[in-house]
Write a protein that binds this DNA or RNA. Structure first.
Lengths: 242, 242
DNA sequence: AATATACCGGAACATACGTTCTGTGTCAAG
DNA sequence: CTTGACACAGAACGTATGTTCCGGTATATT
């Protein structure tokens, strides 16, 4: 095995990586034995040995006789920080603000209530309650003024693969083409729902995304109001207990 | 002595204050006995008693039999200055140009193959295949370097409410906390899957998001490799025919 | 060849630490 | 008054954990 006299060896890097990951995941430091496991070292003394080196080199600090007291003092990261920094700076400078759209969050969408709609004439813009989307994520043709965001409340849209807490970006329209996912208000059911829209010969079929559920047929077009069509769904995953 | 039925008592507040201060000063959590000293309580059992209450109320979390494993989950109120200051600073600092993150798209995630992972040392950055996310959409603490994106191919993740064509933003880690959605590679099944992660006494439970499907139990932790945890899901809805 | 140094495993040890059990006093509800 | 929940102390217990000592191997230096 190659011998390295100074600088960080592979083991040191793996330990540092593990320390960061572990702290990031658990919020506290691993024990010596846990570190050993992560790098396939059986003896605690060897880990202690490495940790002392890392401490002397200033990468970590730890307290005597205190469990899980390792603190990361210096990030390892040989080069990538530089590369990332450069590319990041260039890209940011180029991308500037042009690429970032502010989309107003109008409220929540619930099955039992109509959607809060942005007033079409009054283009009120409240930066407090807006969400930022990179333009590159959206179809190029969408006009920003017609976009708005809603937070989904409840599980009623689960058949559309949309969860409680999801954010849907919608485009205001009262027209829809076949196959588009639309938010519709059903007069006779008194509810808002997200469905795929299909206009058939003399009726409208609203198809749930979940294939195991049957479609809804609307014969009277007047009892259905298309509020908008879904452009994007964003789910920020946190620790969801089941 | 006055009795308080609900909410935080004075002791709880002093403990929370001490936890924050201690972690701030030392970088790791205090032991039960150290907490006891700080609030002039002699018995460890009483501190344990308070800590259990704080945990039930969601202010902290801790792991059984693990030293100094207390994590602060919720800041105590009445100190808006600090929280507001931090968030404000973060938001202002980030608002300028920093708001747009470039996240590399590493490839596709399929049930039958391992996920392509970014090499942890080589931070290759290909602007051609990257996706732009507004930082404000992500939890503030996520480190950009650990994030990468994958496009989902196939319906195998449908039980995780993730569709064919969706983009998942993942964070590279090999650790997971209970309740987080992780991408794991199962050796014995030879497949990658997205499941909610739960560590139980001597096994690991992988719970599909779809309640109608049963969990997978993994008794041998070595046969399971956590590739990362899901931070966000983005679905660009186009006209999907059904 | 002899020696030194880095690298590694095992085991023993002391203790820091979380958990649990028992007991005590207080106060409010029944 | 009795009962029971709540708040608290003390001690005992088991173990998780850091430390240390001892032995071993490989590589390089002299």
């Amino acid at each position: 095995m190659a011998r390295k006299s100074e600088g960080l060896g592979n083991r040191h890097k793996r330990i540092m990586r593990f320390l960061i990951d572990f702290q990031n995941a658990n919020g506290y430091s691993p024990s010596i034995r846990e570190i050993g496991e992560s790098i396939n070292v059986k003896s605690t003394s060897l880990v202690d040995y490495y940790l002392n080196q890392l401490e002397e080199l200033g990468y970590i600090s730890r307290e005597n006789h205190i469990s899980r007291s390792i603190c990361i003092k210096k990030e390892i990261e040989s080069e990538p920080s530089l590369a990332a920094k450069v590319t990041g700076a260039v890209q940011k400078a180029g991308a500037a603000l042009d690429d970032l759209l502010q989309i107003p969050v109008m409220g929540r969408i619930v099955a039992s209530a109509p959607i809060p709609m942005p007033a079409s004439d009054l283009n009120y813009f409240d930066p407090e309650s807006s969400i930022e989307i990179a333009r590159s994520l959206l179809p190029a043709k969408e006009k920003i003024e017609d976009l708005f965001a809603l937070e989904v409340q409840g599980d009623s849209m689960i058949d559309a693969m949309i969860n409680d807490g999801d954010v849907v970006i919608m485009k205001r329209t009262n027209q829809a083409q076949n196959g588009e996912m639309v938010a519709v208000w059903l007069d006779d059911k008194d509810e808002t729902t997200l469905k795929y829209f299909y206009k058939e010969q003399n009726r409208i079929r609203l198809q749930p995304a979940n294939p195991s559920m049957g479609p809804i047929y609307v014969n009277n077009p007047a009892s259905l109001r298309i509020m908008g069509k879904v452009v994007m769904v964003i789910r920020q995953v946190q620790s969801i207990a089941i």
